[in-house]
Design a protein around this nucleic acid. Structure first.
Length: 200
DNA sequence: GCGGGGATTAACT
DNA sequence: GTTAATCCCCGCG
């Protein structure tokens, strides 16, 4: 895929659809998937954004993960085989989009924290940063919870260019998990990308 | 049921 | 640095 903003054409979307990642792609280690998602394209209907920041959340052993209480009604989807969406409401206000990873039973998922404009993503909607903005920019909410990313209008397309240089650091907003889990280097971002803040 | 708190954000002082 | 907005998840009794 090429340089400047693509027009919102059927051809551009068709190209993204051809690059759709298969279900098996997600069924690997959560850290591997979190790293490789940076630079890929998240697509919903006519909108798309380049993923520039992710966080890996592990299974029940990860005290920062929603899987820490086991397969509760909300987090049960995290324990299914990778390749499904996990969307939940945070602070009663913000919808958070994740992709489930690993084989069935693991309870892992990757939070998409930031995207950059791509074909079909209006600039005005993309203003602001953080995981809550990812969902508003792409028109995602809890109706997309548990959706299969290997079919339908919501999916991830393989990175159009060679993988970016990655920055690595601790996850954001998980102090409640204790120092060990809060300090793990499980956040990944496209180094020097303008859509990722310098403070991080 | 109740109560505590959260994978946030923008708008304050 | 502080705080409001806002809702539902989850553990416990």
């Amino acid at each position: 895929m090429s340089d400047r903003a693509l027009p919102r054409t059927a051809a551009a979307l068709a190209e993204l659809r051809r690059a759709r990642l298969p279900r098996s792609w997600y069924q690997r280690d959560v850290v591997t998937v979190a790293r490789e998602l940076v630079g890929c394209v998240l697509v919903h209907r006519q909108r798309a954004g380049i993923i520039v920041e992710t966080e890996a959340y592990g299974g029940p052993e990860d005290r920062a993960s929603h899987a820490r209480f086991g397969p509760t009604p909300r987090a049960e989807v995290m324990f299914r085989a990778g390749g499904l969406a996990y969307v939940y409401l945070c602070y009663g206000i913000h919808e958070m989009f994740n992709v489930v990873t690993g084989p069935a039973g693991r309870g892992e998922a990757v939070l998409i924290r930031a995207i950059a404009p791509h074909a079909g993503l209006p600039d005005d909607v993309a203003i602001g940063r953080g995981p809550g903005k990812v969902t508003t920019a792409l028109g995602l909410d809890r109706r997309h919870d548990r959706r299969d990313l290997s079919r339908g209008a919501l999916f991830v397309a393989a990175a159009p260019a060679s993988p970016p240089e990655l920055g690595v650091g601790p996850r954001v907003g998980v102090a409640y998990a204790g120092e060990h889990w809060a300090s793990q280097p499980l956040r990944f971002w496209w180094r020097d990308h303008p859509a990722v803040s310098k403070a991080r």
